Amino acid sequence: MSHIPILFEDGEALVINKPSGLPIERPRRGGASLEDHFEELKLGFQRAPMPVHRIDTDTSGCLLLARNAKALKRFAKAFEERLVEKRYLGVLSGVPADSEGTIELSLSKISSAEKGWRMIAAKKGKPSITHWRVLAEHGGHTLVEFRPETGRTHQIRVHCQAGLNLPLLGDPVYGNGKGAPRTMLHAAALTVPRTGKPPIDAAAPLPRDFAALGFADG
């Protein structure tokens, strides 16, 4: 069982650097998940920590875990009230026309027997906002910083595809799945404000598969 890097730790919170390919919840078909690491993540506590939010299985980087039920409730409320600052890095399968901007597209879930479920941009969907800026270009690909205001399912992935007309490299759902072994998205940093305490502040280094595409840490 591989060790999960810990980016932040105190009495009520952990932030881990989740590896890409590791689902947070056990897949229906079985297989490895973050649950396999709960014992090692107790770090002397009696209870296993609990994920406060979700990031996709393919997505690497910062994931906040609460070490008790009260903290879980407070942190979840901070996410709901959009108080949490999130910074993602992604690699686009092309070069956008602009160097920065804001994407505002409402998102809705659709499903079909053939393709399963996915999110689409739809006027009647839930409002979602993502700020973005280009950090670097290399080999026809672009390293982009994303700062989502909202936390919708697949938000950044759909905003790239529908808002920038350039899906994330390697995305098999909103792109062609080519160019990278996974969807190239990384939760690079997370800041969670706390009343009467310093904020939870964590940053995850750029993964090796980003470096393999020619990008240094942004």
Rank of each mutant, 00 (worst) to 15 (best):
S93E: 15
E12N: 12
A211M: 14
A66E: 12
I120H: 10
H37S: 11
D36M: 02
N17I: 03
L92S: 09
P27E: 03
S60D: 08
N17C: 12
M1S: 14
H37R: 10
A187Y: 01
A203D: 06
S2W: 02
I16Q: 10
V15N: 01
D36I: 00
P51N: 08
R28D: 14
K123I: 00
L43S: 05
L14C: 08
D56K: 03
P205K: 01
N17F: 01
E104T: 13
S128R: 05
L168A: 07
A162I: 01
A121T: 15
P5L: 04
H154V: 07
D56F: 01
R152L: 05
L166Q: 04
A136W: 04
E149Q: 15
L64S: 06
R26L: 11
R54W: 06
H186Y: 08
G179P: 06
T150P: 11
P5T: 09
S112N: 13
V95N: 01
L168N: 06
G61W: 09
Y174L: 10
D217M: 11
K124Y: 13
A212T: 10
P27I: 10
P181M: 06
L63S: 05
P193R: 07
P23W: 07
G175Y: 04
K73W: 00
L64Q: 03
L164N: 06
I200G: 05
S106C: 14
R152W: 00
I129D: 00
Q46S: 15
K126W: 04
A212I: 00
E149N: 02
L14I: 02
V192R: 04
R133D: 12
G214K: 01
K42S: 08
A13Y: 10
R28F: 12
E81A: 14
K18W: 11
P205G: 09
H138C: 13
G175W: 05
I16N: 10
L185Q: 06
R157I: 04
G11D: 15
A136R: 13
P5F: 04
Q161Y: 01
E149K: 14
G11M: 03
G11I: 02
L164H: 03
I16C: 12
L43K: 13
S93G: 15
P167D: 07
K77V: 11
